[in-house]
Amino acid sequence: MKRLWGPASLLAILLVVALMGSLALGEVRLAPSEVLSVLMGRGSDLARTVVLDFRLPRALVGIAVGASLAASGVLMQSFFRNPLASPGLLGVSTGGALGAVAALALGWTANSIFALPLASISGAFLATFAVMALAKREASAEHLLLAGVALNALFGAATSFLLNLTAGRFEVSGQIIFWMLGGLENRTWSHVWMALPGTVLGCMMLLPLGRSMNLLSLGEQGAQSLGVNVRRLQWEIIILSTVLTALATAVGGVIGFVGLVVPHILRLAIGPDHRRLLPLSMIGGAAFVLVCDLITRFLPGELRLGVVTALIGGPFFLWMLRRPS
């Protein structure tokens, strides 16, 4: 396919460089040769501990989060026929946030390290099912969108309420705020196993949808008249984007704008064809999150990942709004 392999190799190189940076840079600075020798099974004990126990799981979680959120963004933009749509739209991200905050506020996290991610995944699915119940089966995209707006407000309010409940318990409320801002600190291999297989599977499942999504993004009825089973395609899109957003929110907290910025820049570079846009967004999203995570390590005051993506994504979003179409 024309214009796939060139940009794909460029992004792959960017991803590899970002990955090397993630493994080498931080409080303990390692040379690339040291990182490579650790990856080949050699290296000093210190380097092995730093790379294998801390930085590699953190980077792998970052890759899963970035690929999931960017792919989710592409799915929603095609579904709503709007380049401004993003994973947070249906209330899935805030649903996930509410689940995680509930787990923290109610103390479930003391029992198992899986409690927080599981609560987050439950919250995200609760949000999706709520949107579907509100919007019924034959709902239009506008109807779904408004249901998402209402749920976002509701979940946001519930999250703030839970935060108020923990007032005075600074350790818990600090943890909640820390998590709500999103980040990749202290990610372990259990987080990798929680997010990565599902992300890979989800991404594999959505790649074949690109051809039909091209038609859907120019109109539901037109797509159906040309032979697309639109209803089924829409369900596939909704379920895959929910699962991917839920997995990302479960292990990384709320990280905004990845699903908006990455697909949009790629569309400007390679055009809107989803057969190219989907795989390239996954690679690009992964690289974007790794780079933003690297930035958090060097800015003063340990800025959180969600803050960095918002600092880049917020102005970008406003620029998109101002731009004549």
Binding site: R81, N82, P83, Q221, G222, R267, D273
Partner: peptide, 13 residues
């Protein structure tokens, strides 16, 4: 083949 009245196009195909 059906052609509707909706001429909306937001993606730069």
């Amino acid at each position: 083949a059906w052609v509707g009245q909706d001429l909306h196009a937001d993606f730069a195909f």
